[in-house]
Amino acid sequence: MTSILITGGHSGIGLAAARVLAAQHTDLVLAGRSVERMRPVADELRARHDVSVTMLTLDTSSLTSVRTAATQMRTMVDSGEVTGLDALVCNAGGRFDGDVSYSPDGYETTFATNCLGHFLLVQLLFPMLTGKGRVVYTASGTHDPDTTDGRLVGRSVEPDAIALATAGKDGAKPLPAGKRYTTSKLCTVMYAYELNRRLRKANSPVSSIVFDPGAVPETGFLHGMPKPVQWASNTAAMKWVMRRIGATTSDAEFSGASLAALAADPDHANVSGTYFQAHDRTLSPVRSARLSYDERRAARLWDDSKRLVHLTDEEEAAQLR
């Protein structure tokens, strides 16, 4: 039996997805920064569903951590501890409010965590995917500046990997936190589409899917916001307001189940290159931002990201074998 790897599978939407998958007798690899936080979840899933749950230490803000995790994953596959991957779910991420900060590699933290870490992880783990495996990216409707979601958080800007990675350096004015977040999610959508184009060109059966879980206030997404904002966001009144103004709303249980379905359900076996959205307890394929379909920009984002993560030609070639 093969497994599904979920980054951030021990909390929020990732945890909700992990619980659904475990209940379906799917073995899991939980990837996250803290073994101490992952362990209770792994113990719970093993006890309730008699599945294999492996923990993988991974910090997507650190390229060294990503490479170490990929090496450890290869060792586990080679030894038979993990028998392969049916899906790689790139779900971890966050919004980093306050002053601009930088990753251990010197890249702006939001872009490093939400984009570059997963970009590199997909390249390195791709050879471990089964023949009809799936890569599922958790994005956000906030990436689209023409929607209520995008306007509420901060309109995304040009998906320029070099500029985003070095934002705020050399005296330049950094982007506000909201724009750093929404632009990172625009890049996530574009990575998914560009991967799909490359897979189709190589006649690969692997799928690349992108998912907007909607606004889910009961997750840890708002942990950096003031306490009154956190409290208000989870009230019935605020949820009503969000729906009235046209925001994309969901809850952790439904969005987690939707993420699990995109990773494993046979109904989603042939939807590569599609953007799905969870809204009002409905999962639907929808259009993403107009800019996300720009193939020239996506190719440049991909190539610049390759350079930023120091991806070798051999590592990228392994992706398309």
Rank of each mutant, 00 (worst) to 15 (best):
E253R: 11
E253H: 10
E253N: 12
E253A: 14
E253W: 01
F254E: 01
G256N: 00
S258M: 03
S258A: 13
S258P: 07
L259Y: 08
L259D: 04
A260Y: 01
A263V: 04
A264N: 14
A264E: 12
P266M: 04
H268C: 07
A269T: 08
V271S: 11
V271P: 08
S272T: 12
T274L: 02
T274Y: 07
Y275H: 09
Y275P: 03
Y275M: 01
F276K: 06
F276G: 00
Q277A: 10
A278H: 00
A278M: 00
H279D: 11
D280A: 14
D280C: 09
R281G: 04
T282K: 12
L283N: 06
L283W: 09
L283K: 11
L283I: 10
V286D: 11
V286L: 11
V286W: 10
V286N: 10
S288P: 11
A289M: 02
R290W: 08
L291Y: 11
S292H: 04
S292F: 03
Y293N: 08
D294E: 14
D294I: 10
E295K: 10
R296L: 13
R297G: 11
R297K: 15
R297A: 13
A298G: 07
A298R: 03
A299K: 14
R300I: 11
R300T: 14
D303E: 15
D303Q: 15
D303S: 13
D303Y: 09
D304M: 06
D304S: 05
D304L: 04
K306S: 15
R307N: 12
R307C: 06
L308E: 05
V309R: 05
H310W: 07
T312R: 02
T312Y: 01
E314Y: 07
E314H: 06
E315Y: 08
E315A: 04
E315R: 06
E316S: 06
E316A: 09
E316M: 02
E316G: 00
E316V: 02
A317Q: 11
A317L: 01
